[in-house]
Simulated assay, not measured.
Amino acid sequence: MLQVIMFSKKRIEYFTALFILLECNTVYAVALPTNGILVIVAIMGLLVLSMLELKKKAYINAQLGVFFLFYYINAGVAFLHADNKLGFICRFLLCFPCLIFYLSLKSAEDRYKLLFKIVNIMFVEAIISIVFYSLGTWMNFIEPSGAIMINWGEYHSVTSYYGIYFDSQPFRNSGFFAEAPMHSYCLSIALLVELFLKPRHDKWRVLILSVAILTTISTTGFLVLVSVAGFCILKKWYNVSSRVKILTFLFVAAMGLELYQIACGVVKEKQETRSYEIRNYYIEKEIDAWLSHPILGTGFGKNVKGSSNSLFVVLADGGVHFFILYFGALIYFPMAVWIRMKRLDYLIFYLIYVGMFCITVICYNVLTLMILALSLSPLIQRKHLCNYINAK
């Protein structure tokens, strides 16, 4: 019976990982929106199997009751102010709590398994997208198989390559996503997990994911790659001789100067385009919305459309009340883990993620909720429960 449960759970974990990715503005999700229902059903299935695997009510404890009582009181307040009530129910009353509860049933080693499966899926997707991007989009060796109509920005058709790759944006690798930046975001998450959360990383996976990120031609992806390179250099800094340190410092300084000049050029170019004006307009609009309702915000889902910054969207939608959740999960608790357990890789993962969070609208997608849940789940995990699962 236990073997059947474990086999079924592994399959459902892969389905859950796939559904989480599909909710990240993929062509499929835009064409047939589900509001995260598939993810919720899959996570509930995982919860049931995990509790059956435990064979006893070890998952019920005082922390669990206090945490969810406090959470649902606050979520109820936010729900009353929500503009998109159905979206709020699916994400913050069902999906997010289920993710926290599910991850709290896992040991420290097993807690990342769902993310590892997301990495596996994105690795395969990266290979497929690079092949079709190079041989299809650029060289025209592979002909499109058809087109699909999506309502993204405006109702329009997108060129399809056998339903597994789409030319959503000209000359950019969009994979099966409706836009290249979201493809870059998911690839970046896979790269960060591979490098900083896995016990051992695969160099070929790192290379292929990095190449795929470059082909998206996304500012978010470029910044992630630069950040990863910088942190990897700093990690090795203390393990080399003084002479190598000096040479490394000179090299990094030269690269930093070059990147600064490139960044200045990009900023100057963006300032001369309509895109820069639009970004500024929405940031100012979100700040005004937050200042008009600083505690509870203007309501969930009111400020997402048109924005390109998750930080100000969270403040505008949910005020300080909502912002505390994100601040705690993305900054406070990762810092606490680093200070208490000396887990530098864990901190680096979240620091780079915060950088992505500030320049991309990802605050309400299920993958972001999972990363928040990963940080919060130890709060309701009892020590004897961890020992019990580890003993298995």
Rank of each mutant, 00 (worst) to 15 (best):
R172C: 06
V158R: 05
V266S: 05
A329Q: 05
F231D: 05
M341F: 11
L2R: 11
S145G: 14
L94C: 07
R200S: 12
C24L: 12
Y133M: 03
V226P: 00
L69E: 09
G136W: 02
A253C: 10
L325P: 02
K106V: 05
Q381E: 13
Y332L: 15
C363D: 14
V4W: 09
R279I: 05
G65M: 14
L80W: 06
E269M: 10
M44R: 09
V158L: 08
I12R: 00
V193R: 02
K392M: 14
Q63W: 13
S292Y: 01
Y59W: 15
K9M: 12
P97H: 06
I278Q: 10
V48G: 07
K106T: 06
V240C: 07
R243W: 03
N120L: 07
T220S: 14
A263T: 08
T159P: 06
L344D: 09
L234C: 08
V30W: 01
T360S: 15
M182L: 03
G175L: 01
S275K: 06
I389M: 04
R91V: 00
L49G: 13
A180G: 11
S275A: 14
G45A: 03
T26N: 07
V240F: 08
A108G: 05
G306L: 01
Y28M: 14
N309C: 05
W338K: 11
S157Q: 06
I339Q: 11
E125S: 14
I371Q: 00
T220R: 00
I142G: 01
H81C: 07
K55R: 12
N84R: 07
S168C: 08
F92Y: 15
N151E: 15
S134L: 11
T16I: 01
V314I: 14
R200N: 12
R11T: 04
E284V: 12
R274H: 08
S145V: 09
I217M: 15
I287M: 05
A82R: 10
L93D: 02
Q381I: 07
W204Y: 12
L69W: 10
V366C: 05
G76T: 08
L52Q: 10
L376T: 04
Y161H: 00
Q3N: 14
Y102C: 00
L192A: 03
F141I: 08
Y133A: 01
A178L: 04
S227Y: 04
V320M: 11
D83F: 15
I100S: 02
L291E: 08
L257S: 13
Y155E: 15
K305E: 13
F101R: 02
G328S: 09
A31D: 10
R205F: 10
S157F: 08
I5L: 13
K117D: 03
I362V: 11
F251Q: 04
A17P: 01
D83Y: 15
L385Y: 11
L38T: 08
I89R: 00
F312I: 13
V240K: 12
Y388N: 04
E154D: 09
L325Y: 11
M341D: 09
L21A: 00
F196Y: 15
L46D: 00
F322I: 06
Y326I: 07
Y162S: 09
L32I: 09
K270N: 10
T215K: 14
Y72I: 12
M51P: 09
F96W: 08
S184P: 10
T220Y: 05
M6C: 13
A336N: 11
